[in-house]
């Protein structure tokens, strides 16, 4: 599959940063023998998934306020179909880790992630979620959420602007579009049998 086919409306392929990440991602899938099957069915599923990503309402600190701004009138993430914020992790597709994760919160976040249904994605918002931010030297702060859960997109900033979060969302959409439904399901079957 040509990665350049991954289109986001009103944004050119060249305008995105980190395109090589997606290209490498697809190549890696191919090399590892995962059949990147470009069927119409797969395309339709990916189209549906990438355009309907429902976030979990989860915010620990400052970035949560900017996340609210993304939902409000000015930035309006409803345009991308993301506005159905679910309060129950079972129904959410993506978790925006908005804010610092401290030691006491870490198991809670991990449990929330475990409670979400597949396919699930994680966006680390703000420098605290990425690497501890200004509190890196503290005795009670996690140095990045990727220590406990896998992260798909990092959105830097302290706190990031709403536009930055929208950009992060678009990047996640692109990533979902190159994923393969059938390959994923095979993987999860394997995972289950290993258990």
């Amino acid at each position: 599959m040509e990665v350049k086919d991954i289109r986001i409306r009103n944004m050119k392929y060249e305008d995105f940063n980190d395109n090589e990440y997606l290209e490498n991602y697809v190549n890696e899938l191919k090399e590892n023998g995962v059949n990147v099957f470009v069927g119409t069915f797969s395309d339709i599923i990916n189209w549906g998934r990438s355009n309907s990503v429902w976030p979990l309402t989860f915010a620990t600190s400052c970035c949560g306020i900017e996340f609210m701004c993304v939902g409000a009138a000015r930035a309006d993430f409803a345009r991308f179909g993301w506005e159905v914020t679910r309060n129950s992790p079972r129904q959410a597709d993506v978790i925006f880790v908005c804010g610092t994760i401290v030691h006491k919160m870490a198991p809670v976040l991990k449990r929330l992630y475990d409670q979400m249904a597949e396919p699930k994605y994680v966006i680390a918002v703000g420098s605290c979620a990425i690497g501890g931010g200004p509190f890196k030297k503290s005795y009670h702060v996690l140095k990045g959420v990727d220590e406990i859960i896998p992260v798909d997109v990092y959105v830097p900033g302290c706190p990031p602007r709403p536009e930055a979060m929208l950009y992060g969302m678009m990047q996640l959409s692109r990533k979902i579009k190159v994923q393969n439904f059938f390959a994923l399901s095979e993987k999860s079957v394997k995972h289950k049998s290993e258990k």
């Binding site: 620990t60 600190s61 804010g99 610092t100 006491k104 919160m105 509190f135 503290s138 005795y139 009670h140």
Partner: peptide, 14 residues
């Protein structure tokens, strides 16, 4: 409390 206790007061000392 404490789910967002970042230890700011201790950090300030350094």
């Amino acid at each position: 409390f404490g789910y967002i206790h970042r230890g700011i007061e201790k950090l300030c000392e350094s």
